[in-house]
Design a protein around this nucleic acid. Structure first.
Lengths: 128, 128
DNA sequence: TTGTCTGCAAAACATTTGCACCTAT
DNA sequence: ATAGGTGCAAATGTTTTGCAGACAA
Protein backbone atom coordinates (compact mmCIF):
# COMPACT_ATOMS: atom_id res chain seq x y z
CA UNK A 1 0.00 0.00 0.00
CA UNK A 2 1.49 3.26 -1.14
CA UNK A 3 1.12 6.23 1.13
CA UNK A 4 0.17 9.60 -0.32
CA UNK A 5 0.92 11.60 2.77
CA UNK A 6 -2.18 13.68 2.46
CA UNK A 7 -2.60 17.22 3.63
CA UNK A 8 -4.83 16.10 6.46
CA UNK A 9 -2.30 13.60 7.66
CA UNK A 10 0.40 16.24 7.72
CA UNK A 11 -1.77 18.76 9.52
CA UNK A 12 -2.58 16.14 12.11
CA UNK A 13 1.10 15.30 12.52
CA UNK A 14 1.91 18.99 12.86
CA UNK A 15 -0.72 19.63 15.48
CA UNK A 16 0.57 16.65 17.42
CA UNK A 17 4.16 17.78 17.05
CA UNK A 18 3.34 21.26 18.26
CA UNK A 19 2.29 20.18 21.73
CA UNK A 20 3.82 18.36 24.65
CA UNK A 21 0.45 17.60 26.16
CA UNK A 22 -0.13 14.06 24.82
CA UNK A 23 -3.56 14.87 23.43
CA UNK A 24 -6.43 12.58 22.61
CA UNK A 25 -7.81 12.09 19.10
CA UNK A 26 -10.63 14.46 19.91
CA UNK A 27 -8.30 17.26 20.98
CA UNK A 28 -6.39 16.92 17.73
CA UNK A 29 -9.66 16.91 15.83
CA UNK A 30 -10.68 20.18 17.44
CA UNK A 31 -7.34 21.75 16.60
CA UNK A 32 -7.10 20.72 12.98
CA UNK A 33 -10.77 21.43 12.36
CA UNK A 34 -9.96 25.10 12.80
CA UNK A 35 -7.80 24.87 9.70
CA UNK A 36 -9.82 22.28 7.81
CA UNK A 37 -13.44 22.81 8.78
CA UNK A 38 -14.84 19.75 7.06
CA UNK A 39 -12.42 17.37 8.77
CA UNK A 40 -14.05 14.31 10.26
CA UNK A 41 -13.14 12.49 13.43
CA UNK A 42 -12.84 9.20 11.58
CA UNK A 43 -10.09 10.70 9.47
CA UNK A 44 -8.22 11.75 12.57
CA UNK A 45 -8.35 8.22 13.94
CA UNK A 46 -7.37 6.72 10.60
CA UNK A 47 -4.38 9.00 10.23
CA UNK A 48 -3.21 8.68 13.80
CA UNK A 49 -3.13 4.94 13.27
CA UNK A 50 -1.03 5.39 10.15
CA UNK A 51 1.35 7.78 11.90
CA UNK A 52 1.85 5.22 14.63
CA UNK A 53 2.50 2.46 12.09
CA UNK A 54 5.04 4.66 10.39
CA UNK A 55 6.80 5.35 13.66
CA UNK A 56 6.01 9.04 13.56
CA UNK A 57 3.88 8.90 16.68
CA UNK A 58 3.09 6.59 19.52
CA UNK A 59 0.02 5.71 21.55
CA UNK A 60 -0.30 5.82 25.28
CA UNK A 61 -3.17 3.86 26.76
CA UNK A 62 -3.94 6.11 29.68
CA UNK A 63 -5.88 5.47 32.85
CA UNK A 64 -8.79 7.57 31.69
CA UNK A 65 -9.79 5.00 29.09
CA UNK A 66 -8.78 7.15 26.17
CA UNK A 67 -5.80 6.77 23.91
CA UNK A 68 -3.33 9.62 24.05
CA UNK A 69 -0.88 10.36 21.27
CA UNK A 70 2.68 11.60 21.27
CA UNK A 71 4.76 12.75 18.33
CA UNK A 72 7.96 12.99 20.35
CA UNK A 73 9.42 9.63 19.62
CA UNK A 74 12.84 10.03 21.18
CA UNK A 75 13.26 7.70 24.13
CA UNK A 76 11.57 9.00 27.20
CA UNK A 77 9.15 7.81 29.81
CA UNK A 78 5.61 8.62 30.77
CA UNK A 79 4.10 9.35 34.13
CA UNK A 80 0.37 8.79 33.94
CA UNK A 81 -1.96 10.30 36.49
CA UNK A 82 -4.62 7.83 37.62
CA UNK A 83 -6.92 10.62 38.65
CA UNK A 84 -6.94 13.25 35.92
CA UNK A 85 -5.42 11.20 33.09
CA UNK A 86 -2.61 13.68 32.52
CA UNK A 87 0.53 12.28 30.93
CA UNK A 88 3.86 13.84 31.81
CA UNK A 89 7.23 13.19 30.21
CA UNK A 90 10.21 12.05 32.17
CA UNK A 91 13.73 11.74 30.86
CA UNK A 92 16.35 9.45 32.28
CA UNK A 93 18.60 6.82 30.86
CA UNK A 94 18.72 4.95 34.09
CA UNK A 95 16.47 2.15 32.97
CA UNK A 96 18.52 0.90 30.06
CA UNK A 97 20.25 -1.63 32.30
CA UNK A 98 16.86 -2.73 33.54
CA UNK A 99 15.49 -3.30 30.05
CA UNK A 100 18.58 -5.28 29.23
CA UNK A 101 18.22 -7.46 32.27
CA UNK A 102 14.54 -8.07 31.60
CA UNK A 103 15.31 -9.33 28.16
CA UNK A 104 17.91 -11.70 29.51
CA UNK A 105 15.61 -12.91 32.29
CA UNK A 106 12.35 -13.25 30.42
CA UNK A 107 12.95 -13.03 26.67
CA UNK A 108 10.67 -10.03 26.66
CA UNK A 109 11.89 -7.30 24.32
CA UNK A 110 11.17 -3.93 25.90
CA UNK A 111 10.76 -1.33 23.29
CA UNK A 112 12.09 2.17 23.13
CA UNK A 113 8.71 3.43 24.16
CA UNK A 114 10.12 3.42 27.58
CA UNK A 115 8.32 2.97 30.81
CA UNK A 116 4.85 3.86 31.86
CA UNK A 117 4.50 4.68 35.50
CA UNK A 118 1.17 5.35 37.03
CA UNK A 119 0.49 7.38 40.10
CA UNK A 120 -0.78 10.77 41.08
CA UNK A 121 0.42 14.02 39.63
CA UNK A 122 1.28 17.06 41.71
CA UNK A 123 -2.24 18.39 41.50
CA UNK A 124 -4.12 15.19 42.21
CA UNK A 125 -1.79 13.85 44.86
CA UNK A 126 -3.62 13.44 48.15
CA UNK A 127 -2.37 16.18 50.46
CA UNK A 128 -0.54 14.48 53.28
CA UNK B 1 -21.34 2.56 52.69
CA UNK B 2 -21.17 -0.82 54.31
CA UNK B 3 -19.86 -3.72 52.28
CA UNK B 4 -21.59 -7.05 52.51
CA UNK B 5 -18.89 -9.00 50.78
CA UNK B 6 -21.34 -11.02 48.75
CA UNK B 7 -20.82 -14.53 47.56
CA UNK B 8 -20.38 -13.35 44.01
CA UNK B 9 -17.75 -10.86 45.00
CA UNK B 10 -15.78 -13.55 46.82
CA UNK B 11 -16.05 -16.03 43.96
CA UNK B 12 -14.78 -13.36 41.61
CA UNK B 13 -11.89 -12.58 43.93
CA UNK B 14 -11.09 -16.28 44.20
CA UNK B 15 -11.10 -16.85 40.48
CA UNK B 16 -8.82 -13.87 40.07
CA UNK B 17 -6.53 -15.04 42.85
CA UNK B 18 -6.27 -18.49 41.34
CA UNK B 19 -4.54 -17.36 38.17
CA UNK B 20 -1.40 -15.51 37.22
CA UNK B 21 -2.69 -14.70 33.78
CA UNK B 22 -4.06 -11.18 34.40
CA UNK B 23 -7.47 -11.96 32.93
CA UNK B 24 -10.10 -9.65 31.53
CA UNK B 25 -13.54 -9.18 33.03
CA UNK B 26 -14.97 -11.52 30.44
CA UNK B 27 -12.59 -14.34 31.29
CA UNK B 28 -13.52 -14.05 34.94
CA UNK B 29 -17.17 -14.01 33.97
CA UNK B 30 -16.77 -17.27 32.05
CA UNK B 31 -14.99 -18.88 34.99
CA UNK B 32 -17.39 -17.88 37.74
CA UNK B 33 -20.42 -18.54 35.57
CA UNK B 34 -19.56 -22.21 35.76
CA UNK B 35 -20.23 -22.05 39.49
CA UNK B 36 -22.98 -19.46 39.44
CA UNK B 37 -24.87 -19.91 36.19
CA UNK B 38 -27.05 -16.85 36.48
CA UNK B 39 -24.14 -14.50 37.02
CA UNK B 40 -24.22 -11.40 34.88
CA UNK B 41 -21.33 -9.55 33.29
CA UNK B 42 -22.42 -6.28 34.85
CA UNK B 43 -21.96 -7.83 38.27
CA UNK B 44 -18.46 -8.90 37.39
CA UNK B 45 -17.58 -5.36 36.38
CA UNK B 46 -19.24 -3.91 39.46
CA UNK B 47 -17.39 -6.23 41.79
CA UNK B 48 -14.05 -5.89 40.09
CA UNK B 49 -14.36 -2.16 40.56
CA UNK B 50 -15.07 -2.65 44.25
CA UNK B 51 -12.15 -5.05 44.65
CA UNK B 52 -9.87 -2.47 43.11
CA UNK B 53 -11.21 0.25 45.40
CA UNK B 54 -10.61 -2.01 48.37
CA UNK B 55 -7.05 -2.66 47.27
CA UNK B 56 -7.69 -6.35 46.74
CA UNK B 57 -6.98 -6.16 43.02
CA UNK B 58 -5.54 -3.82 40.48
CA UNK B 59 -6.27 -2.88 36.91
CA UNK B 60 -3.84 -2.93 34.04
CA UNK B 61 -4.84 -0.95 30.97
CA UNK B 62 -3.30 -3.16 28.36
CA UNK B 63 -2.40 -2.52 24.76
CA UNK B 64 -5.31 -4.58 23.50
CA UNK B 65 -7.81 -1.97 24.66
CA UNK B 66 -9.22 -4.15 27.41
CA UNK B 67 -8.74 -3.85 31.12
CA UNK B 68 -6.88 -6.71 32.72
CA UNK B 69 -7.10 -7.52 36.42
CA UNK B 70 -4.58 -8.79 38.91
CA UNK B 71 -5.19 -9.98 42.44
CA UNK B 72 -1.52 -10.22 43.26
CA UNK B 73 -1.01 -6.88 44.86
CA UNK B 74 2.49 -7.27 46.19
CA UNK B 75 4.84 -4.87 44.44
CA UNK B 76 5.85 -6.16 41.07
CA UNK B 77 5.98 -4.95 37.53
CA UNK B 78 4.20 -5.74 34.31
CA UNK B 79 5.55 -6.45 30.89
CA UNK B 80 2.80 -5.91 28.36
CA UNK B 81 3.00 -7.40 24.89
CA UNK B 82 1.93 -4.93 22.22
CA UNK B 83 1.08 -7.71 19.85
CA UNK B 84 -0.88 -10.35 21.73
CA UNK B 85 -1.84 -8.31 24.81
CA UNK B 86 -0.29 -10.79 27.20
CA UNK B 87 0.78 -9.42 30.57
CA UNK B 88 3.74 -10.97 32.32
CA UNK B 89 4.96 -10.34 35.85
CA UNK B 90 8.46 -9.16 36.60
CA UNK B 91 9.97 -8.87 40.02
CA UNK B 92 12.81 -6.55 40.91
CA UNK B 93 13.35 -3.91 43.51
CA UNK B 94 15.72 -2.01 41.35
CA UNK B 95 13.33 0.76 40.51
CA UNK B 96 12.66 2.03 44.00
CA UNK B 97 15.43 4.58 43.66
CA UNK B 98 13.93 5.66 40.35
CA UNK B 99 10.47 6.21 41.83
CA UNK B 100 12.05 8.23 44.59
CA UNK B 101 13.97 10.40 42.21
CA UNK B 102 10.90 10.98 40.03
CA UNK B 103 8.97 12.26 42.98
CA UNK B 104 11.75 14.64 43.87
CA UNK B 105 12.13 15.83 40.28
CA UNK B 106 8.51 16.16 39.25
CA UNK B 107 6.26 15.95 42.29
CA UNK B 108 4.66 12.93 40.71
CA UNK B 109 3.85 10.22 43.24
CA UNK B 110 4.50 6.84 41.64
CA UNK B 111 2.33 4.23 43.18
CA UNK B 112 3.18 0.77 44.28
CA UNK B 113 1.59 -0.56 41.15
CA UNK B 114 5.04 -0.57 39.78
CA UNK B 115 6.08 -0.07 36.24
CA UNK B 116 4.41 -0.98 33.02
CA UNK B 117 6.78 -1.79 30.23
CA UNK B 118 5.55 -2.47 26.77
CA UNK B 119 7.27 -4.48 24.13
CA UNK B 120 7.11 -7.87 22.54
CA UNK B 121 6.92 -11.13 24.39
CA UNK B 122 9.04 -14.14 23.54
CA UNK B 123 6.42 -15.48 21.16
CA UNK B 124 5.59 -12.27 19.33
CA UNK B 125 9.12 -10.92 19.16
CA UNK B 126 10.17 -10.44 15.53
CA UNK B 127 12.71 -13.15 14.79
CA UNK B 128 16.00 -11.42 14.08
C1' DT C 1 -7.37 3.72 -14.63
C1' DT C 2 -5.85 2.36 -10.20
C1' DG C 3 -5.19 2.86 -5.72
C1' DT C 4 -5.54 6.02 -1.86
C1' DC C 5 -8.20 9.31 0.93
C1' DT C 6 -12.29 11.29 2.72
C1' DG C 7 -17.02 12.54 5.16
C1' DC C 8 -20.68 10.49 6.93
C1' DA C 9 -23.22 7.44 9.48
C1' DA C 10 -23.57 3.06 11.24
C1' DA C 11 -21.31 -0.49 13.72
C1' DA C 12 -18.39 -2.49 17.06
C1' DC C 13 -16.50 -2.85 21.36
C1' DA C 14 -15.68 -2.67 26.37
C1' DT C 15 -17.71 -0.75 30.20
C1' DT C 16 -21.35 1.63 33.00
C1' DT C 17 -25.85 2.50 34.67
C1' DG C 18 -31.08 2.66 35.60
C1' DC C 19 -34.42 0.00 37.25
C1' DA C 20 -37.14 -3.27 39.64
C1' DC C 21 -36.49 -7.06 42.44
C1' DC C 22 -34.07 -9.81 45.84
C1' DT C 23 -31.38 -10.62 50.13
C1' DA C 24 -29.37 -9.83 54.54
C1' DT C 25 -29.40 -7.40 58.83
C1' DA D 1 -37.32 -1.07 57.34
C1' DT D 2 -32.89 -0.16 55.43
C1' DA D 3 -28.92 -0.74 52.86
C1' DG D 4 -26.60 -3.27 49.86
C1' DG D 5 -26.49 -6.69 45.82
C1' DT D 6 -28.16 -8.47 41.35
C1' DG D 7 -29.94 -9.61 36.36
C1' DC D 8 -31.25 -7.57 32.56
C1' DA D 9 -31.24 -4.43 29.03
C1' DA D 10 -30.34 -0.01 27.59
C1' DA D 11 -27.05 3.63 27.47
C1' DT D 12 -22.43 5.38 27.13
C1' DG D 13 -18.13 6.70 25.10
C1' DT D 14 -14.29 5.64 22.29
C1' DT D 15 -12.69 3.75 18.24
C1' DT D 16 -13.46 1.26 13.80
C1' DT D 17 -15.54 0.40 9.40
C1' DG D 18 -18.55 0.21 5.05
C1' DC D 19 -19.71 2.86 1.51
C1' DA D 20 -19.90 6.01 -2.29
C1' DG D 21 -17.73 9.79 -3.95
C1' DA D 22 -13.29 12.66 -4.57
C1' DC D 23 -8.53 12.92 -5.48
C1' DA D 24 -3.80 11.83 -6.99
C1' DA D 25 -0.38 9.28 -9.71
Amino acid sequence: MKRNSSIRREKIAEALGRTRSHPTAEWIYDQVKQEIPDLSLGTVYRNLKILVEEGRARVIHAEDGKDHFDAHVEAHHHLICKQCGKVVDYYTSEETGLAQRIETDTGFLIDSDGLKLSGFCKDCKPKA
